[in-house]
């Protein structure tokens, strides 16, 4: 398999961040209390990374993939349980994109990709704990299964 360039890998991560932000819009309204606050914080983290990626890709002359009006969710979000399940899925998927960027990057860009992978993996674990999923961890966060 051909190694994507750093710009291609980061564009993939940006598309994943767009989808994550969209998904959290659907997730947040199904949650209450502390879980709702956690969803808001998670969404803010994905927005920060989206904004940073747009700047980074624009200034480096890379292609900035456009956001879309909507994204297909893997399953309908109808209640708290499905919202938490989707939150886990969103974090694992975005983690996978940043994990894929590790091989294409070096130095500060790789540090940034690893920080995102770690942060999203930890958040996926927190969502599993909130949902009562055991074990709350996976052996290889972000690795395609």
């Amino acid at each position: 398999m051909k190694q994507p360039s750093a710009a291609e890998a980061l564009a993939g991560a940006l598309s994943a961040e767009y989808a994550a932000i969209y998904a959290y819009g659907r997730i947040g309204v199904r949650l209450t209390g502390a879980a709702r606050d956690a969803a808001r914080q998670a969404e803010a983290a994905h927005r920060r990374r989206r904004d940073a990626l747009v700047v980074q890709l624009s200034t480096s002359g890379g292609t900035v993939p456009p956001d879309r009006a909507g994204y297909a969710l893997p399953f309908p979000v109808t209640d708290r349980a499905s919202a938490l399940r989707l939150a886990v899925e969103v974090e694992e998927r975005t983690a996978a994109h940043w994990r894929a960027a590790l091989a294409s990057t070096t130095g500060a860009d790789r540090d940034q990709a690893l920080a995102a992978l770690v942060e999203y993996a930890v958040r996926a674990t927190r969502w599993r704990k909130t949902a009562g999923v055991t074990p709350p961890t996976v052996a290889f966060p972000g690795r395609p299964t």
Binding site: Q3, A95, R99, A100, L102, A103, S104, R110, A113, L114, L117, V118, A121, V122, A124, T125, R126, K129, P135, P136, T137, V138, A139, F140, P141, G142, R143
Partner: peptide, 21 residues
């Protein structure tokens, strides 16, 4: 090197999630 970065990233992330668990 590139071909090892993803595995090591997953291991770093796993150890972070263990602290949470």
């Amino acid at each position: 090197p590139a071909e090892r970065a993803a595995l090591l990233g997953s291991i770093a992330a796993a150890r972070a999630t263990h602290q949470e668990a």
